[in-house]
Amino acid sequence: MSSTRPNQLFRNISSKIAAIPMIVTALFVFVGGTIWTVVYSFTNSGLLPRLQWVGLDQYERLWATRKWLISIENLAIYGLCMLVLVFVIGFILAALIDQKIRFEDTIRTVILYPYALSFVVTGLVWQWMLNPEFGVQKVVRGWGWESFTFDPLYSADIAIYGVLIAGIWQGSGLVMVLMLAGLRGIDQDVWKASRVDGIPTWKAYIFVIIPMMRPVFVTTLVIVVTGIVKIYDLIVAQTGGGPGISTEVPAKYVYDMMFQANNLGQGFAASTMMLVTVALIVIPWAILEFGGSKHRD
């Protein structure tokens, strides 16, 4: 028995060597790093991490901090609007492009190119476009509508919607592409059948096509939501969190706490809250998507 043991370990050894980077990444960075951050979120780490337990103090302080509450509120507003608009715009665009149009490639290319640009570039372009002294506001006033006001980045109440415009401009192309792939995957016979039954096109979309595209919608949802939670560079470039702290977001709170305020414990607690948010979305999705398939096998 004992002579077969080394054989087991060295069987397929090249493959195991090839997988070492994956194993190290999975265990040390993803699992280890996450556990480390969660554990240290219960300490009073300041400039350097230290294991001095303070229980839930960091979380209590977090939820009593105005900047964090505003970050959460912004993420909720931005996230909800982004989600709804990006899906509506992406789906309508895909449906329009799916009508066997001419110049399909050109139109698709134009709608998707913002997705190739970084969030920093996106944020800076829209900072310029929405600049009230030079941008859209000035142009419309120049056309004769003197009282026209559109300066979202300069009024704290609506600044987050200025970021939203940039976010939609950058991200809706992705949803369009995914939806278009979903629409192309639908059997033409479904359309023929609905036409024979005399169902109007819009009704066919809502009651037949969209339910059939459930898997595409679910995957797109997961991608869009995880992207929303991570939003950071766009804010840094476009508003820097301002005016005041009106466009702060959780990812920026984490960065500011860890690398500028020397308050690591707060940063760890805030990032743990981000992890919880993502887990609440990804885990049910994973159970739905992969848990069910085990029964089918």
Binding site: S15, I23, A26, V29, A251, S271, L275
Partner: peptide, 25 residues
């Protein structure tokens, strides 16, 4: 090899963890 899928699953789930969680480690 035995156990490969387990590591792969962790790797894929790792893609969803917000970067902020792993920044400091």
């Amino acid at each position: 090899f035995k156990g490969a899928d387990a590591f792969f699953t962790i790797l894929i789930f790792g893609a969803f963890i917000p970067y902020q969680v792993m920044l400091y480690p």
